[in-house]
């Protein structure tokens, strides 16, 4: 089994096609939509958690690529600008998935990007704009 969070970029021509449906139907992948901006006539963006057998997952990804969907791992998209972060910790209770955690010894704030679901709540509350979105 494999479970990954990925960001999908749909070119305009694919927005009106049932891409995710095929992932379920033909590749038996379980999905959980974490975020989606899919508007007709525009480029679409979707953040998904996908779960399934390793072989199915691989085939599913190949299918997505073959139709022209650009795939990125989620962690590439929410980035902490280390030079801006002051390690205050005001983001910590706002993060719904505990991706931002204070180290009890150093009192520095760690960002575990593998836990990040890209909700962007931290992006808005960060007083020094250290959390950046790179879609």
């Amino acid at each position: 089994m494999i479970c990954k969070r990925i960001v999908l970029h749909f070119p305009q021509r694919l927005v009106e096609q049932p891409i995710i449906y095929k992932l379920v139907k033909e590749y038996s992948l379980e999905f959980n939509i974490l975020k989606a901006y899919v508007t007709p006539q525009e480029e679409g963006l979707m953040i998904l958690e996908l779960k399934g057998k390793d072989a199915d997952f691989k085939k599913g990804m190949e299918y997505l690529q073959s139709v022209g969907v650009k795939i990125q791992p989620l962690s590439e998209d929410i980035i902490r600008n280390e030079s801006k972060c002051t390690d205050c910790g005001v983001c910590v209770p706002i993060c719904p998935t505990k991706a931002l955690v204070v180290d009890p010894i150093t009192r520095k704030v760690h960002f575990y990007d593998n836990k990040c679901i890209g909700c962007e709540l931290c992006v808005k509350v960060c007083p020094t704009h250290a959390m950046e979105v790179h879609f």
């Binding site: 390690d87 005001v90 983001c91 910590v92 009192r107």
Partner: peptide, 24 residues
């Protein structure tokens, strides 16, 4: 600093606006 306190019987996560690591 433990990360949670109890307020009116409810466990509540804490957040700091002041950077302790910078203070150090």
């Amino acid at each position: 600093k433990s990360g949670k306190i109890t307020v009116q019987g409810k466990e509540v996560p804490t957040g700091a606006f002041s950077s302790y690591s910078k203070a150090r």
